[in-house]
Each structure stands twice: as structure tokens, then as C-alpha cells.
Nucleic acid binder design. Structure first.
Lengths: 233, 233
DNA sequence: CGATGTCTTGAGTCCCGTCAATGCACGTGG
DNA sequence: CCACGTGCATTGACGGGACTCAAGACATCG
């Protein structure tokens, strides 16, 4: 890699806070890699050959059943980390939802580098703990919320996460944004069918809570109401 | 703490693999603490004052909504770790399902000890990564599986996890075991109601897949069929 | 202007949730 | 010992919310 100090996710990826020397070392291990929309980076069950930082783009993390049913267990954005360190097989698939750019490391190389640099492992631990919290919140959604609540929750979540994509660390929630997911994928995140998703969108639109200029774009008209509908604490 | 080297979870908790000196240091920070069935160790949203190792017993990890709906996001057993290191508030509640014994550490003390002992943080990271994998598998269950598949999956999971509770590291799956959960709690793990859980149990019993000597005891009669019903890969 | 893929909408069905009654084990007190 | 209350669990009847199946709308692209 040329120069990590110029990387646009420099301040938000796990690399943040590394000493200049460490950063340079790590940089030599990684390679930038572009992937295009729809491409799968690695498959569930395959040998875990690589891990990566997401420099730019949006990707889905999913697991599936033998009969084809698929659950999306995470959406990853710029500066997020993907792959399974310290594991033989990848427990999930990762697929690009938009064109994306990654900073890819061979897993075994990354593993040993991490073991020698506690600061990096610490960053990774904090990140994993946060992901676990998010997974728990999503289990509540999947186990207990109805269709309306699920959709409302997703829209609010997307408006926040897509708003964090800038260079600085904290930005506000967006009131208009483009969904990186099609209707089927939204269903696979929320544990709903494509038709139910569509009906809920239509209903929210009819009620004036959101506006849908086109299939992928959402504009939040009444955030307070959306928050109420999401049944958040 | 008296002597960690004699601890029954010595080889399986995060303490495993620590140097004797480190172990002794850590031991001085913790205190053994008994809790009785039904008691809540800490509440979702409260200040995260402590973390702990589970020495003995079974506990539930849960999060809930303002209207009372509750999702159990994890069941923890002997040698598991509970609490949220490096976080201000606890993102979940932890409640004892059986009488239990914990090895409790003040969180801030534990945090700084961990930061000074990379080996411990590494253990914690591996553990958290495994928990995340398990959470993902459960999201698939909650998002895509039907009632029968959910019950079958839970029974198989419990038969494995309860079988791991010995002193050695790997034991086989149990064919008969006592559920540490009542029907409501099973529902809260699986995203089902108490009645649906009961009906599924009755059906599995009628089909000869399991036997139910009493409300809490399960005996697996046809593990292959149960595996098939769980729709596992 | 069709061809194609995605989304929306409608009609009907079914699985699971809801509500309610009953069963069963256990404890307590008469 | 039995009557009674209490807490779970089971079972039944019923309804509704989401799924299924199918048709139609809409956008994009050759």
C-alpha cells in the first residue's frame, strides 16, 4: 500500500490510533482492492483466507440455509472491518451492495500482526463488542417486532449509519438517502417477504411519514412519528 | 480470591492460559459471589459497574422494549463471561436461571487490567467473536425459521451446550437433560409465544422424537429426526 | 417498442398469536 | 387427609398479520 496516512478512513478504521511505524508495517501487508456491485468477496463456509477494511462502499454480511433461505446479519459501511480473524472458516458471506473499495489482508498475516500489536487487537475487540450489541438489538427486532416496527427501525438506522460516512467521526442523521438495498434484501434483513416490505413502504408513504421519490430513495418527512412507529425505548 | 489455580473453570474461562503471576494478580481483583435463581445481576441501561466469570449455573442475557416485550439474546453457562468491558452502560440485563456462582470484577479495574495484559484481551476477543457467530446463527433462526425448526434447533443446541459443562474441554451432546428455562423463557429465546412452544413440544412428543418425563426434562429419542426438523445445513 | 427485471397491489390461505378454559403439581391450612 | 389456592403448562377455538400466488404497473435498456 502506498501511504496509509492519507487513507480516507484513516481516523475511523481499526488502523486509527496506531503509531506511525506500526501503521506503515500494517500498510505493507495490505492491498487495495476494488469490487463491483453484486460481487461476493467471500462465501460462508469457505476457508477464511482474507480480512479487510472497507474503504468505500456498502456490503452485506449474510448467512443462509441449505434450502436457500438467507438472513442478512449485517450491513457494513466505509471504515468497517470484515472477515473472521482467528477462525478457519468464514462463518458468513460478504457481498458488495454497491461498487466498493477494500483494504485486504491475508488472514494469517493479519492474525499474527494483531497478536504482536495489542493496540490493534484492542480496537478490534471494541469493534466486535459494538457489533455484538448491534446484533442483540437486531435479535429483539426479529423476535418481537411487527412489520411496521421493523421497517421504521430500519429506516432510522439507515439514516444514522449513512450519515456517519463522512471524514469526521460524528455526523447527524440524514433526512434523505438512497437505500443500498433492494426490496428483497430489505426483507432478508428484517425477516419479512418482499411483498410485506413493499406494502409497509406504501403505507408509510400514504400516511405522510416518508416520501419515496424513486424505488431506492427515501426521504423522512416525520422523523418523530417514525421513531414512535419503531417502538424504540 | 483464595486460589484461582483450583478454580473449576480454570481451564475454560478467559483466565485459561494466563501466567501464574498474572493469574494471581487478576485473582486479587475478583470476588466470588453467589446469586440465587431469579435474581438479576445487572439491568439493561444501568451503569456497567461489574463484569464476571460464571463459575457455576445458568443465566439469561436479555434486552427488552419499553412496553415489556423481552428478547433473550443469550444463555450463559459455567465458564462464560458476562458484562460489557469498555462500555459505560450495560446494553443488556443478566438474570440467573438457576442458583449460580460468579467471579465478579469491578469493570474499570478489569478494563485496565485487560489493557495491560494482551493475552487476556486476546482471549476476550476470541470469545466475543464466537458469541457474535452464535448471535448471527440465532438471527437466521429468528428471521427465517418456523416454529418447529426453532424448537428443534433449541433442543439440539441445549443438548450440546449443557454437555460442555464438565471439567474437560469437549464432551458429547446429551440425550437427556433438564431445561433451565420455563416455557415463557423458551418463547423469549425463540421469538414465539408460550402456547406455540407448548404445542410444538406436544407434537414432538406425539411423534416420538422426544420424551418429556416432566415439565423441565427433555429426553431426545430420535436425534437424527430432530436434526432434520431443525433444518440445519 | 417489446423485453426484462423490479416493485406494487390484490385475493386467498395459513401459521402463529390471542383469549379462554382446563389440567396438573405443589403447598398451605383447616 | 382433603379442600382450596396458586403457578405453570396444556389444549381448544378463533382471528389476524404476514406469507403465497398471481396479476399488473413501472422503469430501464436494447
Amino acid at each position: 500500500m502506498k501511504d496509509c496516512s492519507q487513507c480516507i478512513v484513516r481516523n475511523r478504521a481499526i488502523c486509527a490510533g496506531l503509531e506511525t511505524a506500526e501503521l506503515e508495517l500494517l500498510g505493507r501487508l495490505g492491498r487495495k482492492h476494488k469490487v463491483s456491485k453484486g460481487q461476493t468477496i467471500f462465501w460462508e463456509g469457505d476457508d477464511a483466507v482474507v480480512v479487510a477494511n472497507v474503504i468505500e462502499g456498502v456490503l452485506k454480511v449474510s448467512i443462509s440455509m441449505s434450502d436457500g433461505r438467507e438472513q442478512i446479519v449485517g450491513i457494513v459501511f466505509s471504515s468497517d472491518f470484515i472477515g473472521r480473524p482467528f477462525g478457519q472458516q468464514s462463518p458468513y458471506s460478504v457481498t458488495a451492495l454497491t461498487d466498493a473499495e477494500l483494504c485486504v489482508f491475508p488472514r494469517s498475516t493479519f492474525d499474527s500482526f494483531a497478536r504482536q500489536h495489542p493496540e490493534l487487537e484492542h480496537k478490534l475487540l471494541r469493534r466486535t463488542l459494538n457489533e455484538l450489541d448491534r446484533a442483540h438489538a437486531w435479535m429483539l427486532l426479529l423476535g418481537k417486532k411487527n412489520a411496521t416496527e421493523r421497517i421504521a427501525t430500519l429506516l432510522l438506522e439507515m439514516s444514522v449509519r449513512l450519515g456517519e460516512t463522512g471524514c469526521t467521526v460524528d455526523n447527524g442523521a440524514l433526512d434523505a438517502f438512497e437505500l443500498p438495498l433492494d426490496r428483497r434484501q430489505i426483507g432478508d434483513v428484517l425477516g419479512l417477504t418482499i411483498e410485506t416490505v413493499s406494502r409497509q413502504f406504501s403505507k408509510l408513504k400514504a400516511d405522510g411519514v416518508i416520501h419515496l421519490p424513486d424505488r431506492r430513495t427515501v426521504s423522512i418527512r416525520d422523523r418523530a412519528r417514525l421513531q414512535y412507529l419503531s417502538a424504540a425505548a
